[in-house]
Structure formats: structure tokens, C-alpha cells
Design a protein around this nucleic acid. Structure first.
Length: 825
RNA sequence: GCCCGGGUGGCGAAACCGGUAGACGCAAGGGACUUAAAAUCCCUUGGGGGGCAACCCCCAUGCAGGUUCGAAUCCUGCCCCGGGCACCA
């Protein structure tokens, strides 16, 4: 036993408790924000503190980000890795309603529980900069941002429809409507209700939000989703004159088909409907409009249903043909896209085709395939125009441009770009959010709350339940909302809606470095030093809304001169989703896996590594716990190698104590491993990085006789120390302990990341594959760097190869240096 | 319907630029150690076939074609799974 010191078994519980204590005492995770030489901002999406606590999906996400942060730190960066809680919002509020507790008491408990669990995972979080969106010290600045947008003319109050459940007597988010029915009352149809709400004019930034995407180092999938969400399309606005003197403007991506426009359709809410409707059509048009208005917003948009609509009795003039075409209204035309009106070209649009057939409208073909004929509707872009006057024979794209400039001469057309992106409605008729800092005065109109009066505190009312009034619970509290107008001092009324949770999370990354300040949202100097975020990791479920909104807010603050950059996240990577039995984890499915028991049984390090070993980080995977023992076995092996490398009690260490000089082969393997792990961690390929380290440790144990259980097996410390450093991001407590056992007094996180030497990475002998006619026939172990001639000579000397050549002459040789030679006969 | 991913052993996966398919791990089977078990260690493990043997051959990456000396990887068509959008004119 005297030759095997430090060979106590690996005890994760003891090791992890010890190092978490040490990190806390030494403030290992705290960063000197002002003094940092090489700042690196490593951000992970902050969680909403659910009552259930952390589940393995959260842990998977955080650990992947933490590994990246720790890796950067070992590369010599001053890594700032903060975390906080997205604690306002409907999720939290609904849960509070369900368990009938006040969110103001409940949510802080959840946060405390979350924080406790997070600490157990061993993340490198700098808790001195925690942010909670429900903290008045935070939401004061959320309200301030609202005021900034308001001042910039980017916040606007207007009427807009919302989903309303007559049973819950409350406004529902679109996600709470399922097929037209309330998610909580499956027998109750959700209806539309029109309320005055606040909007942020994000559509003004559509082009920039789209254009900048090209410059960002983001996951491809995320960029695609953003681009699709913005939904840019190019087309033209065409003008159809009407008898009432105000023309109908339609947006189309196919101006080439205007000769086939045999009718016009307005959205039922279109402002011209009233004026255009003929006397004898009034009743029917009114009835139709009412029917549409009573539908919920979601099922109105479900496509492929039967088309409905009514004729207004009026006609408009097709600007190309000069013909009078009937004006209809139909709910398949949406007021919020384009101009809320379309030209109906049934021959070349599937929806128009369906509509025309339903109501017996004329279908006139104006584009046909080059081969002639073609089945309708014909929507392809390749073809030629027919029945289109002097444009006949042109291909659609060319014809479209020509038609637009021809019509433009008469002021009947102009090219136009459209976006699908809608303005951001930030009003919530709810309790659990920051009150929107506006005071409504009968004389002055909406007046912003003066900055020095912020925050507008959310009052701790007990009756926070929404009710039939359709307005925020705050609207029941006159003692709160009755205030003098800040401008004229007359009695006025506070805005009683709160803002959307997405506004809370749209700027939280700006706050982390500046949590110490109460007189500014973010300190200019610290912000310049630490932002934009270097790497942001989060789920693709936020690929659209959260990432879009935070980009928008950042751009606005930049334009107001408050930020020196306009994109918040330099690099974004979406992690995959951890599912269980093929389905997303959710409480209702009952397949939520909680990390606590695994951490208790195996330790945080084993669990962390296991999650990362499950599959590619950016793909996620199905959680099963069968393989977790494999990770533990690996760590046990490393532990024993460290024991064999550590200083023997009372003796010298390393070579002097019996470890022979490292052989070239194992050194090569080590340097190959260093290269592989370094490159893999850089790209978040954690699963293969772990595999590479396993491979190396297996080889090392083999080479030193440890595998065979040779008790005297000794290991040169320089053969294992780099592995400990590389393991540190993945299994930080374990690595600290091993590092200490190797005789280091300082934390492993003060160590330098190992470097590989190109000369050592290259093997002296390589295995080269010999193919005959593309089929593998032999493998040769040869010195590296053989020329084609040398290699062919050796291949020809191989009886196995000759057998397949069968004496035939070689027609061609394919040669890949140090890899392969293919003899074609 | 449209837009992204993805489909490889019993299982999770690897193969980064078209160049040895299945690294690494799990599970399983056999063996060593042990009074026994656990732990640990060693061997085997895609399918089929041949050989006393070191070994050798054929088939195999969702399906069908194609390009290439050579395809999991590129191209065309199709099937299935996951995600996003969804009457966006």
C-alpha cells in the first residue's frame, strides 16, 4: 500500500461539498468587472422559476453554457457568467392562481429553491450579480425603457383585438387558445374583444432586424426562424379606383397577373367597407362583419377551411384592363397584412381560386406554362403571359416589372416591400408584471410618469385575480390608480395594464454588470467593457420572440445614443431539447425528470458529464439513465490514474519514483487528444470531447500497466495533468480535487489550458488503405510521408493486393497522402 | 401546404473537406479474481458465409435511382420522425 498513496475511492459528495465551500470562500466565481483584462461575457438564458424547480432540461442547458464559460476562463479570459430569474409573467401568475397564493410571496420561495438547486450543479455563476425581474430595482428600469420608447415615438396606444374567454372572464394569450376553445374551458368558445393597448413599433426595424442577421454568428436554425418570422416579401401596391372616390390599394407579389384580377376582396374590418356597401347589401355585410368579429383570433387564421365572404354591391376598376370588378369582403383577407385588401386572381392563386369557385366568380387565365395549357390554379413562376395585352409572351418576373412601371406612369402602381412582422403588443390585462408607467389625463391625454417617480410599484393587492371587467386587476384599486396628472395636476388615472414579460427579458443582459447601480439602468463604462454578449446559449423556443425583442430594444437604445452597439449577442448557439420517451418534458405528461435524485446518487460532476455525453449538445436527445455508470467508471479510472501519478508519501514523484519517461506513442495520443478536445469544446461538441478523453485515458492505462491492475504502475504526472485541466469545464469539482492531489495549491481554474504540439500530433507510422477498383483490399503500416510511387511499390508487393490485380495493368492511381491509394485496373 | 433539422448495430452515438462505416459509451454473453456476491480486470458482440489457423469473402448507413476510381457524406424523386410557420396575397 505504501506505493499507492491517495488511493481512497472517489467520493463525489465529499469532493463537491468541499469545493463548493472553497469557491464560495475564495469568491472564485466573482469577476473584477472593472479590472478585468480580457473580458468575456458568457450568457445563458435565465429561467422562469417554476414551482417544480429545475428539471434536467434546465440543467442540460445551463451545464452546456457553464462548460463554455469555464473553458474560456481556462483559455485566459476573465469570464463573467451571471444568472437571474425571469419571475414576472403569466406562467408565474397562473401558478399562483392555481395554488391560491399571492405571487409576491410564492415566487420568491421558488427562486430560493431554484438558486439552491443551481448551486448544487456547480455552475460558475457570479451570484453577486443576480437579477430578478420582479425586483423594483430592476423593473424600475424596465419602465424607464418603456418611457424611452415612448419619447422616441416608438410606443403607441391603439385599439386591437384580444382573445377573450367568457368563462374565465379574462384575456388569453394566443397560446392559451386551442382550436378556438379556451385551454381551461374546452367547451367555451373564445371570442374577440377590442381593447386599447400599447404597441412597440418593431415593424419600423424590420429591415434592419433582417439585414443584420447576415452579420451575426448565430445558429443557422435560429437565423432562419428569425428571417421567416420577419417574412420579407417584394411586390407592388396596385390601385383600384372606386365609385366613392377613395381607391382601394392592394398589395400583391404577382403584379404580372393583374390582367386576371376579376374581383377585389377587403378584410371585413377594412375602413372602406362601410362607404362602399350598397344599400341593399347592408344587412348581409353587417351580419358577416359581426360574425367575424365574434370569432377568436386563432381559429380565424386556421387555413384550409371553407371560404366565406359577401359581396358589397360595389365595383372597382381594374387598373390594367379598365374593367369593373366586384368588391367582396372575406375573412381570408387579413387587415393586419399589407393594406387589408387584395386583388382576386383565381387562375393563379389557390385561395382566390377556391373563393371564386365558391361564389361563381370569373376565372381568367393570364399565365400559362411554356408548353401551353396548364391546370388551374397555375401558380408557378415559369411560364408566359397570355390575355395580357402587350405583355403577352413575357415571362412572369419580367412582365411584373414591366406592368408595374407601366401602371406607375398613371399613378396606379408602385413597387412595395412587405413584412409579416407585426408590432409588438406589450399590454397585459393582468396583475403580475411591471405597471406601464403612463398616467391618463382627460385633458393632457396619456402622460408619461416622470423618470424621477419611477418605479411605479406594483401594489401588493390581495385580489389579483382577473375578473369579468376585462381590465387588469389593478383597475379595481382606485386608491392606487387615482393620481394627479403630472403635467396639469388635475385628477387623472394610472394605466392599469402591466407590460409583457418579454419586455423584462428584452434587456436583462444589460443589467447584470450594473446591478450595483440604482441611478442608472446600465453603467456606460461597464457596458462598453462587457457588452455585447460574447456567447449566448439558450433554447430555440425563444428563437423568435425573445431574441427578436431583445435585438429590437438594443437597436432602439443604440439609436437613442444609450448603447455603443446595436446587436446584443455576438454569438448565439441554440442547445437541443432533452425529451423523455420521445416527448417534451411537461408536468401534464408526467414525464418530468428532476435532477436532484441523480445528483444525490452520482454527484453533480458525473451527472453534468452524463448529460453532455447523451448526444450532440445542439441536438439534445432522449433522457435515459442507463449509461450514467459509464461516466462514473471513467471518472473512477481518472481518479486512480491521478493516484498513480501523485506524489507518494514521503517520496519524490514522477520519474524518480518509478514512472518511466513517456513513450512517443502515448505522447502522440495525448497531443492528438488535446487538439481534439480543444476544437470540440470551441464548437460545443461536448459528447465527442468526452469520448476523446476516455480514449486517451484507456490508452494511458494500457501503456502504464494500470489497466491490468499492476499495483506498481506509475504514471508521469505530465501525462495526466492536461486531462485534469481539460476535464475541469465538464467536471469542475472532480478536477479541482485531482489537481490538488497532483500537488497544486491553486485552483485548477488558474491553470493554463494545455497546448498541443503539431510535431507530436503526427504519428510516425500511419496505416494506409489500399483499394483496388475502389474496394478495400489491404491495409499497410508505413512511415508517414511516402510518395505515390513509394506507396504503389509497397502496395504491389502485397500478395493480397496482387491477387485482386490479377495481372491486369494499372490504368489509374488515386493517391491520398498518408491515407489511401486506389489502384484502378 | 411551406421552411428548417433528422433517419447509421440490441440502445445513445462517431465518422469535421467524398477516402478504413460503427470511435466512445450502455446493454448482453463468456472468462479471471472471490467461500459467494458486488466492484474491478480480460475477451467477444452489425448481418451472412468460408477456413485447423494468423485470417479471408459477401452484404449493410430510411427507400429507389444517379454522379464518382471511391458516397452515411454530393444530386434527383419518394417514405417516416422532430421542430417552426400557417388563408401573409
Amino acid at each position: 500500500m505504501s506505493t499507492m498513496p491517495n488511493l481512497g475511492a472517489y467520493d463525489p459528495a465529499a469532493v463537491e461539498a468541499k469545493w463548493q465551500r472553497v469557491w464560495e470562500e475564495r469568491r472564485t466565481n466573482a469577476v473584477d468587472l472593472r479590472g478585468a483584462q480580457r473580458p468575456y461575457y458568457n450568457l445563458m438564458m435565465f429561467p422562469y422559476p417554476s414551482a417544480e424547480g429545475l428539471h434536467v432540461g434546465n440543467v442540460f442547458a445551463f451545464v452546456g453554457s457553464d462548460i463554455h464559460g469555464r473553458f474560456r476562463r481556462l483559455l485566459g479570459y476573465d469570464v463573467f457568467e451571471p444568472l437571474g430569474f425571469d419571475a414576472f409573467g403569466i406562467h408565474s401568475e397562473n401558478y399562483a392562481l392555481k395554488v391560491n397564493q399571492h405571487p409576491g410571496r410564492l415566487i420568491p420561495q421558488n427562486i430560493a429553491n431554484f438558486r439552491r438547486q443551481l448551486k448544487r450543479v456547480g455552475l460558475m455563476i457570479d451570484w453577486e450579480h443576480e437579477v430578478q425581474t420582479i425586483d423594483p430595482r430592476y423593473y424600475r428600469w424596465t419602465q424607464w425603457i418603456f418611457l424611452k420608447l415612448y419619447e422616441a415615438g416608438l410606443a403607441e396606444r391603439r385599439e386591437a383585438p384580444v382573445n377573450w374567454c367568457p368563462e374565465c372572464k379574462t384575456v388569453l394569450a394566443n397560446e392559451q387558445v386551442e382550436g378556438g376553445y379556451c385551454e381551461r374551458h374546452p367547451d367555451t368558445r373564445v371570442v374577440q374583444k377590442v381593447l386599447a393597448q400599447w404597441f412597440f413599433k418593431i415593424t419600423r426595424y424590420a429591415e434592419r432586424l433582417l439585414e443584420n442577421l447576415k452579420t451575426l454568428d448565430w445558429s443557422e436554425s435560429t437565423r432562419t426562424m428569425q428571417a421567416n418570422w420577419i417574412g420579407r416579401s417584394e411586390g407592388a401596391e396596385l390601385v383600384f379606383e372606386t365609385p366613392v372616390g377613395i381607391p382601394i390599394r392592394v398589395y400583391t407579389t404577382r403584379p404580372d397577373t393583374v390582367f386576371g384580377a376579376t374581383y377585389v376582396v377587403l378584410a371585413p374590418e377594412h375602413p372602406l367597407v362601410e362607404r362602399l356597401t350598397a344599400g341593399d347589401r347592408r344587412g348581409e355585410v353587417q351580419a358577416y362583419r359581426q360574425r367575424v368579429a365574434s370569432m377568436d383570433l386563432v381559429s380565424r387564421r386556421v387555413g384550409a377551411k371553407e371560404k366565406t365572404g359577401v359581396f358589397t354591391g360595389a365595383y372597382a376598376r381594374n387598373p390594367a384592363t379598365g374593367e369593373a370588378v366586384p368588391i367582396w369582403i372575406a375573412d381570408y383577407v387579413l387587415m393586419e397584412y399589407g393594406s387589408g385588401a387584395i386583388m382576386g386572381v383565381p387562375a393563379h392563386d389557390e385561395r382566390d381560386f377556391e373563393f371564386a369557385r365558391q361564389f361563381g366568380l370569373e376565372i381568367r387565365q393570364v399565365v400559362e406554362p411554356a408548353s401551353g395549357g396548364g391546370e388551374l390554379p397555375f401558380t408557378d413562376w415559369d411560364g408566359v403571359l397570355v390575355n395580357s395585352g402587350r405583355f403577352d409572351g413575357l415571362p412572369p418576373a419580367e412582365a411584373g416589372a414591366a406592368i408595374v412601371s407601366w401602371l406607375a406612369e398613371r399613378g396606379a402602381a408602385r413597387p412595395q416591400v412587405q413584412y409579416r412582422l407585426h408590432d409588438w403588443c406589450i399590454s397585459r390585462q393582468r396583475y403580475w408584471g411591471p405597471p406601464i408607467p403612463i398616467i391618463h389625463c382627460e385633458v393632457c391625454g396619456p402622460v408619461p410618469v416622470p423618470e424621477q417617480d419611477l418605479p411605479v410599484l406594483l401594489p401588493p393587492i390581495e385580489d389579483f385575480r382577473p375578473d369579468e371587467s376585462g381590465v387588469s386587476p389593478l383597475a379595481r384599486h382606485a386608491e392606487w390608480y387615482r393620481v394627479p396628472c403630472p403635467r396639469c395636476r388635475r385628477p387623472a388615472r394610472r394605466e392599469t395594464d402591466v407590460s409583457d414579460t418579454f419586455l423584462d427579458s428584452a434587456w436583462y443582459f444589460l443589467r447584470y454588470p450594473s446591478t450595483e447601480f440604482d441611478d442608472r439602468a446600465f453603467d456606460p463604462e461597464l457596458t462598453r467593457k462587457w457588452l455585447p454578449v460574447d456567447t449566448y446559449i439558450g433554447g430555440n423556443e425563444h428563437a423568435v420572440l425573445h431574441l427578436m425583442y431583445s435585438r429590437f430594444i438594443t437597436m432602439v437604445l443604440h439609436d437613442l445614443g444609450l448603447l455603443p452597439f446595436e446587436e446584443p449577442y455576438r454569438r448565439f448557439r441554440a442547445h437541443g431539447t432533452i425529451v423523455k420517451d420521445g416527448a417534451k418534458m411537461s408536468k401534464s405528461r408526467g414525464n418530468v425528470v428532476v435532477p436532484d435524485t441523480y445528483i444525490a446518487k452520482w454527484g453533480a460532476d458525473t451527472f453534468r458529464m452524463y448529460l453532455m455525453f447523451l448526444g450532440p449538445y445542439q441536438e439534445g436527445g432522449d433522457f435515459r439513465d442507463e449509461g450514467i455508470a459509464g461516466i462514473r467508471r471513467f471518472l473512477d479510472k481518472v481518479w486512480s490514474v491521478v493516484g498513480a501519478a501523485a506524489e507518494p508519501a514521503g517520496g519524490a514523484r514522477g520519474e524518480a519514483a518509478g514512472a518511466s519517461a513517456p513513450g512517443r506513442e502515448i505522447l502522440t495520443k495525448l497531443h492528438q487528444t488535446i487538439r481534439k478536445v480543444t476544437e470540440d469544446l470551441e464548437e460545443l461538441r461536448y459528447n465527442t470531447a468526452i469520448a476523446a478523453m476516455m480514449e486517451y485515458v484507456n490508452a494511458l492505462r494500457e501503456a502504464t500497466g494500470l489497466a491490468a491492475g499492476v499495483a506498481e504502475g506509475r504514471v508521469a504526472p505530465e501525462l495526466i495533468a492536461p486531462v485534469i485541466v481539460m476535464l475541469a469545464p465538464l467536471a469542475p469539482h472532480f478536477a479541482e480535487e485531482c489537481w490538488e492531489r497532483l500537488g497544486h495549491a491553486e485552483s485548477v481554474f488558474t491553470a493554463r489550458w494545455p497546448r498541443w504540439e503539431e510535431a507530436l500530433v503526427r504519428e510516425e507510422q500511419v496505416e494506409v488503405v489500399v483499394q483496388v477498383n475502389g474496394r478495400l483490399r489491404s491495409r499497410l503500416l508505413v512511415p508517414r510521408g511516402l510518395t505515390q510511387e513509394q506507396l504503389v511499390d509497397r502496395a504491389l508487393a502485397d500478395p493480397a493486393v496482387r491477387r485482386y490485380l490479377d495481372g491486369r495493368p494499372i490504368r489509374k492511381v488515386v493517391y491520398v497522402p498518408d491515407r489511401l491509394v486506389n489502384l484502378v485496373v
